[in-house]
Computed example of a mutant assay.
Amino acid sequence: MATNYGASSNDNGNGALLAGVVGFGLGIAAAVGRKAAVQAITASAGDWFEGLKAEHKLAMGIIETLEKTTEEDTKKRAALLFSLQHALGKHAIQEEDVIYCALRASGEVEAANELGQDHNAEVKQGLYDLEQIDKASPAWLTRLQELKSDIEAHVREEEDVVFPKLYASLSEEENKKLTKRMNFEGFKVA
């Protein structure tokens, strides 16, 4: 007598297919939940400007935690650097793909281009350098402090000069649309 270790003769593999579909659905739900949790800090801030300020604060908090590490904390530095890269990467996408475009549309082309250049020339290069430098090297912390200085200058320009001007130039409805668009963009890459 043959033993049937697989699906029953009248199952025809439907159980395995159903399990695959359920597993896929659960995976999608988990991914959506994770993305929502990551974007929650920004979305709960209210509008696009407050959301970006909250993200600036989050990134600076990660940097301050990194500054407290020692040369022996190589794994902690690597993990925190990964968190910083993700936070700043999502943040850059929101600014570059939405906010800087709105700046250009409002006539602030030079400001948008300069801020975008800051992201590429200073922030992305700094993150790359930190990834390449030995986490136990004293040069690592020195490069982190240089990156922090670059980010602080960039944040001051955005929060104190450029973004307030853009926010004030838009109607309440336009600011709501910009907030919605920015949060959607952030959710996509969260």
Rank of each mutant, 00 (worst) to 15 (best):
G107L: 08
V123Y: 07
C101W: 12
K76Y: 10
E96V: 05
K90V: 00
V98G: 15
E114T: 13
N113V: 08
A105M: 05
D97Y: 01
R104Y: 09
E110D: 14
K90D: 01
K76L: 09
V109Q: 07
E67N: 12
I93L: 00
T65Q: 00
A105F: 06
E114A: 14
L81P: 00
V109D: 13
E108C: 13
K90G: 02
G116K: 09
E131D: 05
E96F: 05
E122M: 15
L130I: 11
L66Y: 10
E122I: 10
G126Q: 12
A92Q: 03
A111G: 15
L115H: 00
A78S: 07
L80A: 07
H91T: 01
Y128I: 06
N120H: 10
A121H: 12
D73E: 11
H91M: 00
F82D: 15
V98R: 09
L80G: 08
Q117W: 09
E95L: 02
K75Q: 15
E122H: 14
E72I: 07
A111C: 14
E96W: 03
Q94L: 11
G116W: 04
A112T: 13
E95C: 02
L81T: 05
Q85K: 03
Y128A: 07
L84Q: 02
A87S: 04
Q125A: 11
I93F: 00
G116N: 13
A111K: 12
K68C: 05
G126I: 08
N120A: 14
I62R: 00
